[in-house]
Every structure is written in structure tokens, then in C-alpha cells.
Design a binder for these strands. Sequence first.
DNA 1: GCAATTTATATTGCGCACAACTAAATTGTG
DNA 2: CACAATTTAGTTGTGCGCAATATAAATTGC
Lengths: 168, 168
Amino acid sequence: MSGSAERPGLACDGANPLALERQLCFALYAASRAMTRAYQPMLQALDITYPQYLVLLVLWERDGTVAAGDDGAAISVGALGRQLMLDSGTLTPLLKRMEIRGLLDRRRGTEDERVTVVTLTDAGRALRPQALAWVEKQRDSTKLTHRDVKELHAGLWKLLEALGGDLP
Amino acid sequence: MSGSAERPGLACDGANPLALERQLCFALYAASRAMTRAYQPMLQALDITYPQYLVLLVLWERDGTVAAGDDGAAISVGALGRQLMLDSGTLTPLLKRMEIRGLLDRRRGTEDERVTVVTLTDAGRALRPQALAWVEKQRDSTKLTHRDVKELHAGLWKLLEALGGDLP
DNA sequence: GCAATTTATATTGCGCACAACTAAATTGTG
DNA sequence: CACAATTTAGTTGTGCGCAATATAAATTGC
């Protein structure tokens, strides 16, 4: 192998606008997967997947803001998809698996027969304390400052808003 | 349905540590997918997928830093996986599809027969200018300031480092 | 009142991600 | 040198993501 005579246009790494580590898109992509990996211990303990956990976050949240006993955690597939920014092609099979696991119920709306309404079960409700405990524990053991996390969070939402026009 | 008597512990939404929009993990997850969506116009024009684009970024980068004519873009599957933080279960079929598309070559290493070496072809090299043009155009039309992008980028790498202990 | 359109979900097909496992080559060690 | 341990890819199986399409119920227009 020779080893000399570099290509002219790209000789200096620092000048390459397509360098992997310079891409915001790659940092996002890698960080998102690393974060999902970090959640694996809890997810395995609860025997759910990461997007299933996100569905539960939505159901738990609604469950907490409504009258006790009343089925306020009920939400349509469409509304769920809008919150999670996921479409029915992703949600339908995912929700079916969660239904089989006994974490939620799926039935057709009584007023509008087109909608499928998802409802949290007691089994699904029962996972919340474990998830909460784990999340609080992680919050304490993270190597990032509270300020770093807050700034990152704000920056990500700003990015989401900037890209919002391309939402599904 | 009643409609009154909220649940005690969660009555105030703002106090729910598991609220979806408060989760850094969800902001990351949603932003990463929104970013991938934003790349779709270019990816479709080049007839590649997003992770295939990332592979090309690595190969283009290596291609630019070595002697012309010498096959410096060559890289093992393992080294590629380390850069992209992906394992062989993801990369092997992805690289096979790229080989069929004619974007790269895959052959066994001559010294060590365990490794598979991936090499950029002229067809793969030819996609770079189009990608570069698109990326530069986006950089100008983004609604985020250069400063916002830089801070977000830095924050994401800081997070990646913090989570680094859990890398595959 | 009913055809045309819109809305809401489900289905299909492809390509990741990643865990778990297998196979083959290489290295280290007595 | 023999051979166990390690390294490197590949294989298999499950579950997303999402585009494209299908289906069916509800709404609108005339």
C-alpha cells in the first residue's frame, strides 16, 4: 500500500460536512437507542417492550387525572397515536400483544363504531409503581446534571417543533 | 359516570414524574424518528434507507482520508458496528442488501478469514455529492439556530457518554 | 334518501434493532 | 503441537416503524 497522495477535496477530516460524528441525525439516532438499552432492566422486569411502556405512560397519566372508578384511561387508537406520534400500523399489533398480556382492553366505540377504544386493566395499572421506583432511582444515579437533562429535553422539543411540519 | 373525586396521589398532572412529555426518553425517541422522516426525501431519491445512509457516511469519510486509488474505504463489519453502535445481526443483512444494490463489496479478509471486509464501490461513491447537496440545503432552511443545533449535538454526545457503560 | 367523500382502524410487506445462538478461525498456553 | 478460550460473523426469532393499501362506518352534498 502507498499511504501518500491524499484526495484533494477531503484531505482534512475536520472539513468534511458529512463526517458521521458531526451529524445531529446520528447523535439522535445513537442516543435514542442507547436510552432504550438503558431501560432494558426495568422493561424485562415488567416483561414489556419500550414502545409498550410508552403506551402505558399515556394510560397511567390519563388514569391519574380522572375520577376514581370511572374509566378515564380509555383512549382511542387515533388519539394514542397522535400523542406517541405513531400510526395504526405500529399500534394495532402492539396493542393486541398488550391485550393478550392482559395489560389493557380493546373494544369498539359504542357511539362511533369506527374507533377502537383502549382501556387500562388492573394488571396494567399494577405495573406503574415498579416503573416509577425504577425511574426515580435512575434519576439519582445518572451522570448528567439536572440542568443538562433539562436543556437537552428543551432542545429536543424545540427540534420536534421545527420538524413538526413533517409529522405523519 | 361521576366526574368528580380525583385520585389523591396524581391529582395534579404537573406532579406526575411519569408524564409522557416530561420523559427525556420519549423526547429522544420521537425526535429521532422525526429526524429520520425529515431525511426521507433525500433517501428516496438515492433509493437507500436511513441506516444504509449512515453506513455510507462511514465509508465516504474513510474514502476521503486515504490515498487515491488505494482502497482505504475498506472496513470490517466489526469496526463498522463499533462506529455506528450496531451489531452484526443488524449489519449483516443490511450490508448484503447494499451489496446487491451495488453500493459496496463484501469479501473475507485475506489475513484473518473470520472478518468480512466491506469496500465502497464507484456506485456508492457516486451518491455522495447528492447527499452533500441536500444536507447543505437543509442546513440553511432549518428553523433552528446554528447555536441550538450545536448545543443539542453536544448534549446528545454527553448523554451518549453517560450511557456509554451500557453499550453493546 | 342515498351516492360520494371523509374518517378511523386494520392489514400487508419490508427493513431495521437486538437478544440468543451457532460456526469457524485465531490465539494463548502447557 | 494439542486444545481450550477468545474473537468475528452469521443465523434465527420477535417486535417495532412506516408506507401503501384495504375495509368499513360515519358524514356530507345534492
